[in-house]
Design a protein around this nucleic acid. Structure first.
Lengths: 221, 221
DNA sequence: CAACTCCTCAAGTAATGTCTTGAATATAGA
DNA sequence: TCTATATTCAAGACATTACTTGAGGAGTTG
């Protein structure tokens, strides 16, 4: 007790959890799973890897105690073990963004120029929803909307936005949201809407952050 | 923009930060540095590694943007880049403790039996300090006390406690604290005090958590 | 039960991580 | 300037990780 070997084993175990997050593909998986459960095939497409490799990474995450599974027919659905895992992911992202200058450049390369993109805060959006003078669109894939979304938000995956734009009520501001601060869907949606002359902003961050702020959510509606 | 390659680069960068924490020795370093700055020689003794290897691990942490340095004469002091890093470390520890059953066993092997060890909450301790009916002892190494401590706490490193016990005022409860939930010093102190018939409890968690709870601290007093 | 879908497992390879040893650098003090 | 101290750097041995390919297991459907 209290000796070096036992201490090493304990801290190695903490390290194992960090190591599980220490791979870009696994980080992407956590980011997607923070939206809700998904099956392996979808996840594999999401991170652009083979199913075998995706399965391997998911097992690493499961062994580290970060994700768990549920079988439904031939499909196996993965989900985060708890909301704390999403908290950990957010903390990691925040530290990385705050102290790793490179992140800014990489984010800019991935997200494009965001300087002219206006955002709306969570609390303000909650008020506007209550007042009813805003249309909220969820531009994530339909499966993520089904797994949980902001109350009243319409599911219009980014790929389908151009075709469905006319069905949005006129003369009302549109707020788009997606997965989080590093998700491009909402940015793309706002740019598209503005090009077509609509008033549009993106919600700060995304759905998991809305949920973590204890704001109301709706499931499969 | 928005393509897979850019997304991979961004998430790889997040992964790099996690990877920096993904080693038991580096996790120990973060845990120690959460107490305040320390120089390489001390850190090397703290994690039981060669100075060269410790220096290597510190450079990994620095490259990941988690720690930074300050030179003073021939010594180089390392510290966490910001309080957010301590938050990240706490989030990691919490997730690990909550979901990785093995942690419980490893913690028990390292910490010993804690079932009979009473703790006192932060808020309760703050009140008791204000009321003046408690003696608070900081059983971490003196360097950590010097880098920041709970107001009024006496520095009595665990090695020196047995020799200094008589100097503690009689008939007053003693509260010991150290580095955090996985630090053995306070446990050892409480066990020693109780064996000698003193009323003693340990503070829940440790100094970094006290600081993160925005309770008052004192530096080099 | 045969064919199919979805997922996991095993083996292999190239790349990366950990720790040791010994040399090199930077600063302080005689 | 010489010496001592504190830290970093470089090279190398050894273990681990990431991804591919192909086979195998589990459940469903005809």
């Amino acid at each position: 007790m209290g000796d070096r070997q036992a201490k090493e084993a304990l801290f190695d175990a903490f390290g194992e959890v960090a190591k599980a997050l220490g791979n870009g593909r696994r980080a992407e998986l956590i980011d997607v799973l923070a939206q809700g459960e998904r099956h392996v095939d979808e996840l594999s497409a999401e991170i652009g890897q083979s199913v075998a490799n995706t399965s391997f990474h998911l097992r690493v995450l499961a062994t580290a105690g970060l994700v768990t599974t549920r079988r439904e027919g031939t499909r196996i659905y993965y989900r985060l073990v708890s909301a704390r895992v999403a908290d950990l992911w957010a903390a990691l992202r925040d530290v990385a963004a705050a102290h790793h200058e490179q992140i800014d450049e990489l984010a800019a390369a991935y997200m494009g120029d965001r300087t002219r993109l206006e955002q709306i805060g969570r609390d303000e959006l909650a008020e506007r929803i209550a007042a009813g003078d805003v249309v909220v669109i969820d531009v994530r894939p339909a499966a993520e909307h089904a797994a949980g979304h902001i109350p009243g938000a319409r599911s219009i995956p980014i790929d389908e936005l151009a075709a469905n734009m006319k069905r949005l009520p006129a003369e009302v501001e549109v707020v788009a949201y997606c997965r989080g601060p590093y998700c491009v869907f909402a940015d793309d949606a706002v740019r598209l809407l503005r090009r077509r002359g609509r008033a549009a902003r993106r919600l700060e961050d995304g759905f998991p952050e809305w949920q973590r702020a204890n704001l109301p959510i709706e499931i499969a509606g």
